[in-house]
Amino acid sequence: MGMPNRKYADGEVVMGRWPGSVLYYEVQVTSYDDASHLYTVKYKDGTELALKESDIRLQS
């Protein structure tokens, strides 16, 4: 078993793309699913969504 190939840690605050949009919002990573390679993130309004790594970026 190798290390999970994840870029962002639980609790890390990053920018997540809103689905169907080009806009990124501040989100907190809450979990990562090794099987689906999706991150569960929480937006400031409390919305929780699963995002692909390509829809997440570090805060500038």
Rank of each mutant, 00 (worst) to 15 (best):
I56V: 04
K44M: 13
E26S: 07
A9Q: 14
S36A: 10
T47D: 03
V27C: 15
D33E: 04
Y43M: 15
N5S: 14
P4H: 11
Q28F: 08
T30Q: 13
Y24T: 02
D45E: 03
S54M: 09
G11R: 03
T40C: 10
A9D: 07
T30K: 13
E48P: 04
T40M: 12
Y8S: 01
L51G: 00
D45W: 09
D55V: 02
Y8E: 01
V29T: 00
I56H: 01
V41A: 05
Y24R: 02
S31V: 03
E26I: 10
T40K: 10
H37P: 02
Q59A: 14
L23R: 12
D45T: 04
D10N: 11
P19R: 15
A50K: 15
K44A: 11
Y32H: 02
K7A: 09
V27K: 00
L38C: 09
S31Q: 08
L38D: 07
H37C: 12
K44I: 11
P4K: 07
E48M: 12
R6T: 03
Y43G: 09
S54G: 09
H37S: 13
V13H: 10
D55E: 11
T40D: 03
D34C: 09
D10F: 04
L51V: 07
Y25W: 09
K52T: 14
T40I: 12
E12T: 09
T40E: 06
D45P: 01
L51D: 00
G16I: 15
T47R: 10
M1W: 02
Y39F: 02
K42S: 08
K42V: 14
M3A: 15
T30M: 15
P19A: 06
D55I: 01
L58T: 14
N5F: 07
G2K: 02
A50F: 13
G46K: 04
P19M: 05
Q28C: 11
S36P: 00
E12D: 12
Y32T: 00
Y8I: 04
L49E: 04
Y8R: 01
D34E: 14
E12Y: 03
L38I: 12
D10W: 03
D10L: 07
E26Y: 09
M15S: 06
M15A: 05
G11V: 01
A35E: 13
T30S: 09
R6V: 03
L23I: 13
G16N: 01
K42Y: 07
P19Y: 05
A50E: 14
L23M: 15
Y25N: 05
H37W: 07
S36T: 14
S60Y: 08
V14P: 01
K7Q: 08
L49P: 00
H37D: 14
K7L: 12
E12H: 05
M3N: 15
R6Q: 09
L58I: 14
S60W: 08
T30D: 06
E26T: 09
Y25F: 12
D34F: 07
G11E: 04
D45N: 08
L49G: 08
D33V: 02
M1Q: 15
Y25K: 09
V27D: 00
D34M: 06
V14C: 04
V13E: 05
G11W: 06
T47G: 04
Q28P: 00
L38K: 09
D34Q: 08
R17A: 04
P4F: 07
T40P: 01
T30F: 08
A50R: 14
D33L: 03
Q59T: 13
Y8P: 02
S60L: 12
Y32K: 00
D10M: 06
L49D: 03
I56T: 01
K52L: 13
E53N: 04
Y39L: 02
V29C: 01
P4C: 12
S21W: 03
R6K: 05
L58H: 14
A9Y: 10
D10Q: 06
A50C: 13
K42N: 05
L38E: 11
D45H: 03
M1A: 15
M3C: 15
E48F: 12
N5C: 14
T40H: 11
S21R: 07
V27L: 09
A50Y: 15
D33M: 02
L49F: 15
H37K: 13
S31C: 07
M15E: 11
A50G: 07
V22K: 12
T30P: 00
H37A: 14
R57V: 11
V29F: 00
L58R: 14
T30A: 09
R57A: 10
G46F: 04
W18I: 09
G16Q: 02
S31G: 14
V29L: 02
A35Q: 13
E26G: 02
K42M: 13
K44E: 10
R6M: 03
E12C: 07
G2W: 04
D33F: 02
A9C: 09
K7F: 05
N5T: 14
G46Q: 04
D34S: 08
G20T: 04
Y25S: 06
V13R: 10
Y24D: 03
Y39V: 04
V27W: 03
S60C: 14
Y32S: 00
Y8K: 00
E53A: 06
D55A: 06
D33P: 00
K42R: 12
W18F: 12
H37L: 13
M1S: 15
D10I: 11
S36R: 10
M15N: 04
W18E: 04
K42H: 08
Y43S: 10
M3K: 15
D34L: 06
G2P: 15
S31A: 12
E53S: 05
E48I: 14
Q28S: 10
L49I: 13
L23D: 13
W18D: 03
E12W: 06
V22R: 12
D55N: 05
Y25E: 09
A50H: 14
V41M: 01
M1F: 03
K52C: 12
R17V: 05
K42A: 09
E48A: 07
D33G: 02
Y24V: 02
G46T: 03
V13L: 12
G20W: 05
G46N: 06
T30C: 12
M15Y: 11
S31L: 04
N5P: 14
E48K: 09
V29Y: 00
V22N: 15
Y39Q: 01
G16F: 08
V29S: 00
V22Y: 13
V14D: 01
M1G: 15
Q28K: 10
R17E: 01
E48G: 03
V13Q: 08
A9T: 08
M3V: 15
P4L: 12
Q59L: 15
G20R: 05
K52V: 10
V14E: 00
E26N: 05
L51H: 01
V29G: 00
P19S: 04
M15L: 14
W18C: 11
Y39P: 01
D33W: 02
Y8T: 01
G11D: 05
P4G: 15
A35Y: 12
W18S: 08
R17T: 03
E48R: 08
V22S: 13
L51W: 03
S54E: 14
R57C: 14
V27S: 04
R57N: 07
E53G: 05
Y32E: 00
S60E: 13
K52P: 14
V13K: 11
Q28A: 07
R57K: 13
Y25V: 14
H37N: 14
Y43Q: 06
P4D: 13
T47F: 08
L49N: 04
D10S: 06
Q28N: 05
Y24Q: 02
R17H: 04
E12N: 05
D55G: 02
T30Y: 07
L58G: 14
M15W: 11
G46Y: 03
G2Q: 09
Y43R: 09
Y32W: 09
L38A: 06
V41N: 00
N5M: 09
E26Q: 11
K42T: 11
Y8Q: 01
P4Q: 12
A50V: 14
D33C: 07
V29P: 00
N5W: 05
D34A: 08
N5K: 06
V27N: 00
Y39E: 01
E12F: 04
Y39R: 01
K7R: 08
Y43A: 13
Q59Y: 11
M1H: 15
D10E: 07
Y25T: 08
D33Q: 03
G46R: 03
T40N: 09
G2C: 08
E48S: 10
E48C: 11
Y8V: 03
G11N: 07
D55L: 03
H37I: 03
M3E: 15
V13A: 06
E53H: 05
V22D: 15
R6Y: 03
G2V: 06
R17I: 07
A9N: 10
I56E: 00
Y39S: 01
G16S: 06
G16H: 04
Q28V: 15
S54T: 12
V13W: 13
G2T: 07
N5A: 15
